[in-house]
Design a binder for these strands. Structure first.
Lengths: 143, 143
DNA sequence: TTCGCTTATCTAGCGTACTAGATTTTAGAA
DNA sequence: TTCTAAAATCTAGTACGCTAGATAAGCGAA
């Protein structure tokens, strides 16, 4: 009945835009009780995997620009999850480290993955295939 | 060498977040000369497929909330691409229609799809499969 | 008709994302 | 050493994306 529609709905970029937004919304009910937003949750995950990290390194890992990561880290500091310290070896750098309060999030934060996985009803294999496809997508050939 | 990293990089949600951001960045050089942002480009595409639409209908098609779509449409109006008119049949509604200046974007806007397609180096088949996978993803079962 | 409920849109406020420009530290050259 | 350029971070401004609350028009029932 909507046979004449052939524009936005057929665009890969629109599907991607929608799926990413839906995924963030799916996380919200689990993250809100912890006092985290979705991008903040990604930052905490990255820090759990090896803090301290410089602001620049953290941003690069998450593919976030300096104008995004700086205020995000400051909010995490304000919430008491991380500390920000000038690197004594290079005073240009700011090292971000987890506080005990930040580390205490680990169990709950890691548990969220499983809850999302079941909500998506994807097999481990399907999820992994999709992840790999997305990682390759829209990446300039040089990288 | 980074064999111990196993957190953010392995998350489907992170891959999705990154791919959507990269896709929007990929569009930017084509959209900037037209004076459009990526979400505005999606709105124009939807309107080209059948204007006028009410603010609510347009938002629903794009899966954008009222707090997002209202200011977006007002900016499109300010740029002279659309008009906003109260629906005489129901004064609660605001109908969004393309101006001649808005319709004049059609050729260039539709051409962007092909440019993105070649930048992504995906076959039509691969693109379509991915699109279908994403459309199903993170959609509650009821829909 | 009028009360009250629903629907459609708008507004305000917070947290991303992005760009561009400013600041501070480091490092190299004259 | 001092001048200069590069690197790391910060700040300001615009545009989403979300929530919550406000406004206004339609609509059914007493």
């Amino acid at each position: 009945m909507t046979s004449e529609r052939h524009t936005v709905g057929t665009q890969l970029s629109f599907a991607l835009y929608g799926a990413a937004n839906r995924m963030a919304r799916l996380h919200k009910p689990f993250l809100e009780p912890l006092g985290l937003t979705f991008p903040q949750y990604l930052a905490i995950l990255e820090l759990l995997d090896g803090a301290p990290l410089s602001v620049g390194t953290l941003g690069a890992r998450l593919d976030m620009d300096t104008g995004t990561i700086t205020p995000l880290v400051k909010r995490l500091e304000g919430a008491g999850f991380v500390t920000r310290t000038r690197d004594p070896a290079d005073e240009r750098r700011v090292l971000v480290d987890l506080t005990p309060r930040g580390r205490a999030l680990e169990a709950e934060v890691r548990g969220i993955t499983d809850k999302i996985k079941s909500a998506c009803q994807l097999t481990d294999q399907g999820m992994d295939d999709l992840r790999r496809t997305l990682e390759a997508l829209a990446h300039p050939a040089s990288e």
